[in-house]
């Protein structure tokens, strides 16, 4: 299949997935015990009878399920994801304000985890029983077993009391902070700890993955061919092996984006990073259901886009893939 056709097909599939997310969202809301109107209103000032009546009318809550679903989808198509009664603003407005910090956190964590992880894995693969390999094994165990939010808190304790190098909460120094380039530096400074916390888990994962993958590839026949050509070891490893070894890493990067988002919710909450995760936490405290459902939808959207991009990236690296990168 040619690339445009592939993209068109993938986009169609992505839309179907998004539709399914919406149906799921609404079904959960419908199935939830208690008065749906009160659920939607959340803790918005005790929810006056007029407000509840308005919600019932807006959402058609006395209609049958399918009619309600239809009404809900109709609103979504018009860009209306509901109203956050806590903020008294459309959910989309609230979410868009928090989107960029989350993307910044998630994308930089993933990039750091992948690049450093691959780097470590490639070097470890050349000595399967060496020190680096053992460090990676231990790191992977820690990365799996440490609760990410607790690691974050421990870092805060350490850095707040022992070595105060980095700020421990927020994204900038507030209205008194710098502007322009100074502001970028400020944000990076605040970003350091959350990214460190979030990327460490995945760093271990990717170094283990790329180590295993690299060890596989280094045993491949075409690596022997490359050596038999008289290429030096650097070219053999970095030109012939690396590009093949990185394929599973790319696959997992796409698959794991959702999991990374989950970690981001916890890490943002710990560091009060003003993104969707902190917003989700606050929404739980305020019982702000429409906002939480909106976050679920938009994070699914981001995961879908990330998967599309991974698919394209995979195509760039592996010429064999002609239809789909999915196993």
């Amino acid at each position: 299949m040619r690339l445009p056709a592939v993209i068109a097909k993938r986009l169609g599939y992505a839309l179907a997935l998004l539709f399914a997310v919406l149906v799921l969202n609404f079904t959960l809301l419908y199935l939830a015990p208690g008065d749906a109107a009160e659920t939607i209103a959340g803790e918005a000032g005790g929810a006056s009878p007029e407000m509840l009546a308005k919600i019932r009318k807006d959402y058609g809550l006395d209609l049958p399920f399918l009619d309600q679903l239809y009404l809900y989808l109709l609103k979504v198509v018009q860009g209306d994801f509901g109203h956050s009664f806590y903020f008294d603003q459309p959910v989309t407005t609230v979410i868009f304000e928090n989107l960029a910090p989350t993307l910044l956190l998630v994308v930089s964590s993933l990039l750091i985890a992948i690049s450093f992880g691959t780097f470590l894995g490639v070097f470890a693969a050349r000595r399967p029983n060496g020190l680096l390999s053992q460090i990676i094994t231990v790191l992977a165990l820690l990365g799996y077993a440490l609760p990410v939010f607790w690691t974050g808190i421990m870092l805060i304790i350490l850095l707040a009391s022992v070595i105060p190098l980095f700020p421990t909460s927020g994204m900038d120094s507030g209205p008194l902070g710098a502007a322009g380039f100074g502001y970028v530096w400020e944000v990076l400074h605040h970003l350091a700890l959350p990214v460190l916390t979030l990327s460490t888990i995945y760093l271990a994962f990717y170094s283990r993955l790329s180590r295993a993958s690299m060890m596989d590839v280094l045993g491949a026949d075409y690596i022997r061919t490359a050596r038999a050509k008289g290429l030096n070891e650097r070219v053999v490893v970095f030109k012939h092996a690396l590009r093949n070894a990185v394929l599973p890493v790319v696959t997992f990067a796409g698959l794991q984006f959702g999991a990374l988002f989950s970690g981001a919710v916890l890490v943002e909450t710990v560091f009060s990073w003003p993104g969707l995760g902190t917003l989700a936490f606050d929404s739980i405290l305020r019982r702000d259901t429409p906002t939480l459902l909106g976050i679920l939808f938009f994070s699914a959207l981001i995961v879908i886009v990330a998967n599309l991009l991974t698919d394209l990236a995979y195509r760039l690296v592996d010429p064999r893939i002609k239809s789909a990168a999915r196993a």
Binding site: L17, L24, L255, G258, V265, A280, S299, V303, N307
Partner: peptide, 9 residues
Amino acid sequence: FFQVLPPLL
């Protein structure tokens, strides 16, 4: 579909 939804959320 379930892999697209961030599990914790």
